[in-house]
């Protein structure tokens, strides 16, 4: 299976090609498929339904405005959408907390992960497995993951907050992400 086929493997996800042709129906299908995950992610970061809805709307519009520039050899539309949702949610969170808004210019090119993760996580069982893996992390790793991934802190900021060396923060983050990845099972990246 080549990269393109793999990236089209998530059942029902419109292809970049369909979106790039500015097919509103394909975009509506993407909304139906991805919005609950996007909204759930925004809620997890923001704990505010109104702000979460605004972020999701903003992310979908951003995707629509940039869809002609998307490259189907990299990440799926949903992966990009979720990345934008998280970053914008964190921007809002930081702005609300201390006025330190950090505007990300979203990358059109995602870091390359394995897109089959989306296909796998279509099953509730696999998603639950990931959540259990996070819950099972040692406290020090889970705290770092929480602060970096869901609160948007940088490694030096976390190090300062926790009074540990920045190398320790990076090491804990690396271990935490590795365990999350491992919880996906051996079928990914085999």
């Amino acid at each position: 299976m080549d990269g393109t086929e793999r990236r089209e493997a998530w059942q029902g996800e419109p292809t970049v090609r369909a979106l790039r042709s500015r097919d509103v129906d394909a975009f509506a299908a993407l909304y139906d498929l991805a919005a609950p995950r996007a909204y759930g992610l925004a809620l997890k970061v923001l704990h505010d339904p109104q702000l979460a809805a605004d972020v999701v709307q903003d992310a979908f519009l951003w995707l629509w405005q940039h869809v002609e520039q998307l490259d189907e050899r990299r990440g799926t539309p949903t992966a990009l959408l979720l990345t934008v949702v998280r970053r914008r949610a964190i921007d809002l969170l930081r702005a609300r907390a201390n006025g330190r808004e950090r505007r990300w210019e979203e990358d059109l090119e995602l870091p390359s992960g394995d897109p089959r993760v989306l296909e796998l996580l279509e099953s509730h069982e696999a998603s639950a497995r990931i959540r259990r893996a996070v819950d099972a992390l040692p406290t020090e790793q889970r705290v770092v993951l929480e602060l970096v991934y869901y609160r948007g802190y940088t490694a030096p900021e976390v190090a300062e907050a926790l009074h540990v060396p920045v190398g320790t923060v990076r090491s804990r983050l690396r271990l935490a992400l590795g365990k999350v990845r491992a919880a996906l099972g051996a079928e990914v990246l085999r």
Partner: peptide
């Protein structure tokens, strides 16, 4: 591997 872990977090 790490990026896949992050993607899993978002999607899960």
């Amino acid at each position: 591997e790490l990026v896949t872990g992050v993607l899993a977090l978002a999607a899960a």
